[in-house]
Nucleic acid binder design. Structure first.
Lengths: 107, 107
DNA sequence: TTTTATTATCGTAATATTGCGATATTATAA
DNA sequence: TTATAATATCGCAATATTACGATAATAAAA
């Protein structure tokens, strides 16, 4: 008990929930907003900007990468994290599709 | 440690994260999808349909109500939960606004 | 009033998430 | 090669979430 019962839901439900869940943390929202304001981005900027430890920021970046919203390129000895705009748009469409189909037929 | 540092983020970031977070569970996605397929809805249907205990379903319904996506009316000795279509549309717009403004200026 | 049915709440156990210090890894600079 | 700098990973402590049985609350039916 305590564990989410993934197996009783279908693939689409689990996938949607996973996407929403990763977006469901203020640090990750803040990271996305900050990156979108920059031309480029290095992680160390984020540590100062957001106010969390370097290890914590790195972890959040990893999660955002896991759903494809960020892509990171090595740039010298630092990293350049960017929003993957194709995946970003696809995600937005995906979520909108959920919102549009789910609100049908409601009393 | 372990606790989300809400205070270092602004109101908008925390609000967005909260909305995403509540949508970030497959049972709550499934509940929304099931309700939208019905003309009406009673909680007991959900218990059979979803396959979680009654107490658990009730808890998830409460969370969906907390962000305004569901409204519940007493109907005899059972409850009629429905999607609040106005709030639903507002939420969709709210999230789209985040997606549209955040993807700007990316490298 | 008593029973029955439905939903909400409480308490608790199990798992997940968050955050960070310490350390490893990787790549440039000296 | 040896620093130095930037990021990733590991391990742990603290908090949050999930799920459920037991029970309370509420309202119709008997």
């Amino acid at each position: 008990m305590g564990i989410t019962k993934t197996q009783i839901f279908d693939r689409r439900q689990n996938e949607l929930a996973q996407l929403f869940k990763i977006l469901g943390h203020p640090a990750r929202i803040a990271i996305l907003q900050y990156i979108s304001k920059q031309d480029a981005c290095i992680c160390n900027d984020l540590v100062e900007e957001i106010g969390l430890a370097q290890a914590t920021i790195s972890q959040h970046l990893k999660e955002l990468k896991s759903i494809g919203l960020l892509k990171g390129e090595i740039e010298g000895k630092s990293m350049c994290y960017c929003i993957d705009i194709d995946n970003w748009n696809a995600l937005q469409q995906n979520l909108n599709s959920f919102f549009n189909t789910t609100k049908q037929n409601c009393c």
